[in-house]
């Protein structure tokens, strides 16, 4: 059963990625102008050469077929801007940066968020609960491009504790501020999700049964409540990745990190079609596969799920 489910989901994933790429490609092509002529008008002869070089003189469906064939063979071609590098090279170079920051941020958010949310739920309506939830609301409301610079202002420019904007690889002190900036909103979300989930579970009949067994409150929470209470957080993990990708774009911009997001924005500004398509295709696959993994994980955590 499970394998059939996975197979079916994977089969849906492929056309979806193709749809996303086609949509992106169409948007790029529908826009007037071209990457080579953004500023000045070129002499017709030169323009004709360029168009021939990139195949732009052929009918659109031929071009589309070409693009699709490249993408399906996982060869996205050369970047137009960084001419010496293939898109795959750039992905290989930038992904570790984004992945390091994103993973650390999410793990931190998971740790702090679940603890905060659980404690808030256990002490419902106490000062601690209100405090934790107020801070979470703040985390949701303060945009990361406001939080980031404020952290820089305090920890780098005033206290000189941490470097403001550079990349020293993983792990390094230069990661601290980007990770904090990125994880704030997930911490807040996860704390709120955990609290809501735990509150519902703590009120359920099976928790009353657990208490009636004579278990300590600690055993009740850790053995019985946590699993059900954290299910919403598990569900959140899938969409969180998509959000994390957009989040890293901002954070990389604030801290000038050489990551995927920075290159994606630059590619858009430079009309670097192969690079854009490459990054979109890569992240789409990543997000879809990740969502599938989360669904499978959900099935392991909740035995009632049948595929």
């Amino acid at each position: 059963m499970k394998f059939r489910f996975i197979l079916r989901r994977l089969l849906v994933t492929v056309p979806m990625v193709l749809v996303v790429i086609t949509l992106t490609w169409a948007l790029i092509r529908l826009a007037p102008g071209n990457f080579y002529a953004s500023e000045r008008k070129l002499p017709p002869a030169i323009e004709k050469n360029i168009r021939a070089k990139y195949g732009l003189d052929r009918p659109w469906y031929v071009q589309y077929g070409h693009v699709m064939r490249n993408i399906l063979s996982l060869d996205f071609g050369n970047s137009l801007k960084y001419e010496n590098e293939t898109v795959n090279d750039i992905l290989r170079r930038t992904l570790p940066v984004s992945a390091a920051v994103g993973t650390c941020a999410y793990l931190l958010a998971l740790l702090v968020g679940t603890v905060l949310g659980t404690v808030a739920a256990l002490k419902q309506n106490s000062k601690l609960d209100y405090g934790a939830m107020g801070v979470s609301m703040l985390g949701i409301s303060v945009p990361n491009f406001v939080l980031g610079p404020i952290l820089v202002l305090v920890f780098s420019l005033s206290l000189y504790w941490l470097p403001p904007a550079r990349w020293d690889g993983f792990p390094s002190w230069s990661m601290v501020l980007p990770v904090l900036t990125l994880s704030a909103i997930y911490m807040a979300y996860i704390a709120r999700l955990t609290r809501a989930g735990m509150l519902e579970v703590l009120r359920s009949d099976y928790i009353r049964t657990a208490r009636a067994k004579g278990l300590t409150e600690r055993q009740v929470v850790l053995r019985h409540a946590l699993r059900g209470g954290l299910l919403p957080v598990v569900s959140f993990t899938g969409p969180a990745l998509a959000l994390l990708i957009t989040g890293t774009v901002v954070v990389e911009r604030i801290y000038a990190l050489p990551g995927l997001g920075t290159y994606f924005i630059n590619a858009n500004l430079n009309r670097d079609e192969p690079l854009i398509l490459g990054i979109v295709a890569f992240t789409s696959v990543l997000v879809l596969v990740f969502n599938l993994l989360v669904d499978i994980a959900y099935g392991f955590i909740d035995p009632r799920i049948r595929y």
Binding site: Y206, T209, A212, K213, G214, G228
Partner: peptide
């Protein structure tokens, strides 16, 4: 509290109304 816990489930135990929700579905 810890004395009460030694009584619960051992010397006094309870059966609840709704068996559908009274057992932990994850265990």
């Amino acid at each position: 509290d810890d004395e009460v816990r030694k009584i619960r489930g051992k010397r006094i135990s309870m059966i609840f109304q709704d068996p559908m929700t009274s057992l932990n579905p994850f265990m």
